[in-house]
């Protein structure tokens, strides 16, 4: 398998606090990668560095062979990396449908007419199960619907790499299975997915490989079965 994303020696501190310490990470084309770690271990910070929201202090990031380390976020989005936000960040003055039209128009590689855009946005909302909320304001959504909107909007940029930052938090067990089924469909369409998740059942079901962060360091990287038995991981993550 060829690599799609490569992170080399990534380091980021906030003031004196070191949030990411010499992180190396390779994600292969079409892979389903689980990224876990205790709260505050640097998962979101890593995503922020990859998507250009934060500038790393050192290290390099490559996507599809091109360096993206110092690119503006919008260029990274256009290159094909989409993310959801752990704390939802909707465009609050727009409807749910209009929220999706922004990445469809600004990030997706294919240029569409307004009517095609709307149809494409509706299709995504149907897939995620938000079809009946298309004309609602994001402010009227429940927490769970809001997360689904985050996911839908990330999909609307038609990414090659999709990064999900705890989109399943708060879902009931049946909804969790529904969501996992959707991720498997997306994966089947060839989208590479990085899933950050605390719900172990979901991560284990989904991931082909598991990476564990603890206090800004990568402490494990391997098959889910092996990683979960790793004593260091048990100590850092499961034993907390």
């Amino acid at each position: 398998m060829a690599s799609l994303l490569e992170v080399h020696d990534l380091t980021k501190s906030f003031g004196g606090f070191s949030a990411l310490n010499h992180i190396d990470l390779v994600v292969h084309r079409g892979e389903r990668l689980g990224l876990i770690g205790p709260n505050g271990s640097g998962k979101t910070t890593l995503i922020n560095c990859i998507t250009g929201v934060l500038r790393p202090d050192r290290g390099r990031i490559y996507f599809d062979g091109e360096e993206i380390t110092s690119l503006a976020s919008f260029r990274i989005a256009r290159a094909g990396i989409a993310r959801s936000f752990q704390i939802p960040r909707p465009f609050r003055s727009m409807t749910v449908l209009e929220n999706l039209c922004i990445p469809l128009r600004f990030a997706a590689a294919v240029k569409m007419r307004s009517t095609e855009l709307e149809a494409a946005a509706r299709e995504i909302l149907e897939l995620i199960g938000l079809g009946d909320k298309a004309t609602a304001s994001p402010l009227d959504l429940t927490q769970i619907e809001m997360r689904k909107m985050e996911l839908s909007r990330a999909l609307a940029s038609r990414p090659r790499l999709l990064i999900l930052d705890e989109v399943m938090a708060g879902l009931a067990s049946s909804e969790l299975d529904e969501m996992l089924a959707i991720f498997h469909i997306l994966s089947g369409q060839g989208i590479t997915i990085i899933m950050i998740e605390h719900i172990l059942r979901a991560v284990m079901n989904f991931s082909q490989r598991l990476v564990v962060l603890d206090a800004g360091r990568k402490i494990a990287d391997g098959s889910p079965g092996d990683v979960i038995k790793n004593p260091q991981v048990e100590k850092a993550y499961l034993g907390e």
Binding site: T51, G52, V53, A72, S73, F74, I76, A77, R78, A82, R83, F85, R89, P90, F91, R92, S93, M94, E98, C101, I102, P103, R105, F106, A107, A108, R153, A156, S157
Partner: peptide, 18 residues
């Protein structure tokens, strides 16, 4: 519409290609 996205949330706008 791009400006509205920026007004609503600059980080989200940038990550969605604006």
């Amino acid at each position: 519409r791009g400006l509205a996205a920026i007004r609503d949330d600059e980080v989200a706008a940038a990550c969605n290609g604006v």
